[in-house]
Design a protein around this nucleic acid. Structure first.
Length: 191
DNA sequence: CGTTAGATCTCCT
DNA sequence: GGAGATCTAACGT
């Protein structure tokens, strides 16, 4: 069965954020199709890596293809894929999945069976899959993770990122066009 | 439909 | 001490 393209994680964050849309992310067999991502780079004021390495963000400065999992607002976990062989401190935040595998496990962890509330948001998807700080630094394409290539070419939209206060206009959020499983509706530049 | 507050970890000033 | 790549429940329109 075909794997990811050669050098998949070595590309820059903008390219990888777009390329991840439509791929299928699983953790211990639970997960679904990635429908929403955001790119973060070391030269980007909104990125955790902008001010250099800290204990929290050290995975961002490590090998590509690894997870950067951090605690958000003291209680949620957020999952990123470290990338860009040329610029250390680059990563892609995975913001939403279309649930496909392990529905009951996700529903139990999330406390709802509404498929649109299982993985629509970075904190929600880590809770649904059972991802936490234990997975920080692990490769995202080998067990307990799995990352399957997109089954078919996908239409992707770009727009401003969510929940940040710096570099708010950079159109570095990517969404699967027409998906019902986004954390928020896609907004293009012209509306 | 909208806004608001509160939960509480990591880093910066 | 305060802000932050969030989410939920509560409450007003």
């Amino acid at each position: 069965m075909p794997g990811l393209p050669y050098g998949f994680f070595e590309q820059d964050a903008l390219s990888l954020a777009r390329a991840l849309i439509g791929t299928e992310l699983l953790f211990r067999g639970v997960g679904g199709r990635i429908v929403e991502t955001e790119a973060y780079r070391a030269d980007d004021a909104a990125s955790h890596s902008f001010r250099g390495p800290t204990p929290r963000n050290r995975a961002m400065f490590g090998p590509v293809g690894r997870a950067y999992v951090y605690r958000s607002y003291g209680m949620h976990w957020c999952f990123n894929v470290v990338c860009d062989a040329a610029e250390a401190g680059s990563a892609v935040l995975v913001r939403a999945l279309e649930p496909l595998d392990g529905f009951d496990a996700m529903a139990a962890r999330r406390g709802t069976r509404d498929p649109r509330l299982l993985c629509a948001g970075p904190g929600r998807l880590t809770q649904a899959l059972g991802i936490d700080g234990e997975q920080d630094g692990l490769p995202v394409d080998t067990p307990p993770f799995e990352l399957r290539p997109a089954a078919a070419p996908t239409a992707v939209s770009a727009g401003p990122r969510i929940g940040i206060t710096k570099a708010v206009d950079a159109p570095w959020r990517f969404c699967l066009v027409g998906s019902r499983f986004l954390s928020r509706p896609a907004r293009t530049a012209h509306g």
